[in-house]
Structures are given as structure tokens and as C-alpha cells.
């Protein structure tokens, strides 16, 4: 009897486990394995090179450049998109005419295909006759090339990302807001709290589990971004808008340096793990779970 239970248990886990092992664990392990070998080329097979790839990484200025870019990108997009998401969720959680329409409008960027979104923004940013230049042209400003300047390329991509992410995060905040009993706000109001105090002392702390969830996702997303860069800037100019995953993509599949690509991937995986664990520890003390 116990023996058969054991078999049943494994059979039930098997489908999910097969996919996990095949597409997550196995690739992760092979990646780590590959990072200790050289890239096989032509008739020359891969050779064990120890930590050579890692040494190269430490001396690679482009790696440090994209890592810094990624850091600024995360710092610039995550807090802003979370703040926007909360503000939008608070707004559409109220009762007003056309609420459904506004909710839909906020969520639209999430439903649109990434490629389409990036192309639309490409038109906005187009020098000379793009939307932005046309608008600022009305005020007498000259032509801009936001995506083409090293100083503004990353910022321009950050704007697109915030626009896209905020609406997605809003859905989570909206769902969380609707689980907060209205009596809590009423009780706080009776106790003399104004709107800002209610938000600071009641609503925001009760949204903390959502904020934790959303911020972990936001960090992962910020390290995962490739598609926008692909269409908007191609990482340029001079790697000014290149992010870690985009660099990995270029190294592995454009320059076919798979070993070095694997090494970069290992670093990114380690970084993401550390960040996620850190976030959980940091937030855990401040998060109240019901």
C-alpha cells in the first residue's frame, strides 16, 4: 500500500518535474559547466580552461559598462513604475464614470505585443518628425535624437519600460486594494486621519506583500529586458543602452562565443538569486501577511 502511494506521488509530480528539469535545471547546470570550457570552433573541440573565462570577464570593460547600465536601469525604472502603479491603482479603485475604460487603458501596454510597442515608441522618438520632436517643435525647440545620443539612449528606453510595467503592476495593486476592508479606512478617518495619513499608515503597509512580489518581479524583468533594446537602439550607441541580457545575447548568438556567454549568464543568475534572497530578507521584517 505505502509502496503504491510512493509511485503515485512521483507520477503526479513527473510532468511538472520533467519540464522543470528539461528547461530550467539542466540548462542551468550545463551553463555553469560550459563556463569552465573554451568555445568549440570548427575542428577544435571545447577545452577545459578553469577560471579563464571569469578572469576575462573581470577585465572586460563592456561587461562592467552593461552591468552599470543595468543598475541604473533598475534604479530608474523599478521605484518609478511601482509608485505609478500604486497611484493608478488607488485612482481606479475609486468609483467614477468610465472607470472600466481607464482600467483598460492602464492595462493596454501589457496586452500589446512587445514588438508593436517598441515600434510605436520608435516613431515617437524619431528625430525630426517623431511625436516628441513635433510637440517640442511647437515650442521652438530643435530636432532631438533621444535614442541616438549616448547620454539619453538609456533614459529613453527606461521611459518605455516604465510605461509598460506600471500598468502591469497596477493590476496586482488593484487586486490587493480590493482585499483591504473599507472599514479600516473608515475607522482611520473617524480617528482623525486624512487621506495621506491613511495611505502612509494603513493602505501602504497592507500593500507590502504585493510590493515585495512586484519588486522581485520588477528586478527580474529589468535584468531580462532584450526586446525593446533590440528594436529601439540595438544596444548602442557605444553600448550606452546595452543591458546584461542583451550583451549575453550578442556574445552568444551574434559573435558565437558561447563559453563566454555561459560565463556571463552564470554571473547574471548569481546576481538575480542574491537580489531575490536579499529582497525577501529585507522586506520580511516589514511585511505583514494576513
Amino acid at each position: 500500500m505505502t509502496r503504491r502511494d510512493w509511485i503515485h506521488g512521483w507520477l503526479l509530480v513527473l510532468p511538472a518535474m520533467a519540464f522543470l528539469v528539461l528547461f530550467t535545471h539542466l540548462p542551468a547546470i550545463t551553463t555553469i559547466w560550459n563556463s569552465f570550457f573554451s568555445t568549440p570552433r570548427g575542428r577544435r573541440p571545447a577545452m577545459f580552461v578553469g577560471l579563464d573565462n571569469y578572469e576575462r570577464l573581470l577585465n572586460d570593460p563592456i561587461f562592467w559598462k552593461v552591468l552599470t547600465n543595468n543598475l541604473w536601469f533598475a534604479l530608474g525604472t523599478i521605484p518609478t513604475s511601482i509608485a505609478l502603479a500604486i497611484a493608478m491603482a488607488l485612482f481606479v479603485n475609486r468609483r467614477f464614470m468610465g472607470r472600466g475604460f481607464v482600467r483598460m487603458a492602464y492595462f493596454t501596454p501589457t496586452v500589446l505585443p512587445l514588438i508593436a510597442v517598441a515600434n510605436i515608441w520608435l516613431f515617437f522618438y524619431t528625430p525630426g518628425f517623431g511625436l516628441i520632436d513635433q510637440v517640442i517643435g511647437l515650442f521652438g525647440y530643435g530636432q532631438t535624437n533621444l535614442l541616438g545620443e549616448p547620454d539619453t539612449a538609456l533614459a529613453a528606453i527606461m521611459v518605455v519600460t516604465i510605461w509598460k510595467e506600471a500598468g502591469f503592476f497596477m493590476i496586482f495593486y488593484l487586486a490587493a486594494l480590493q482585499t483591504i476592508p473599507p472599514q479600516l479606512t473608515e475607522a482611520a478617518r473617524i480617528e482623525g486621519a486624512n487621506g495621506w495619513t491613511i495611505f502612509r499608515r494603513i493602505t501602504f503597509p497592507l500593500l507590502m506583500p504585493t510590493t515585495l512580489f512586484v519588486s522581485v518581479n520588477a528586478v527580474i524583468n529589468s535584468f531580462r529586458l532584450v526586446d525593446h533594446i533590440f528594436i529601439l537602439t540595438g544596444g548602442g550607441p557605444d553600448n550606452a543602452s546595452s543591458l546584461l541580457l542583451f550583451y549575453i545575447y550578442e556574445t552568444s548568438f551574434r559573435f558565437w562565443d558561447t563559453a563566454y556567454g555561459a560565463t556571463l549568464t552564470v554571473v547574471m543568475l548569481a546576481l538575480l538569486c542574491l537580489l531575490a534572497i536579499g529582497q525577501f530578507f529585507f522586506f520580511d521584517r516589514k511585511v505583514h501577511y494576513k
Partner: peptide
């Protein structure tokens, strides 16, 4: 001041 049927205590 007011006491609610559900008490409306702040859970956090």
C-alpha cells in the same frame, strides 16, 4: 469615536 461591527482593527 466609533466601534465597528467587524471591529476594523488595523491588522498590521
Amino acid at each position: 469615536s466609533m466601534v465597528f461591527q467587524s471591529y476594523a482593527l488595523f491588522p498590521h
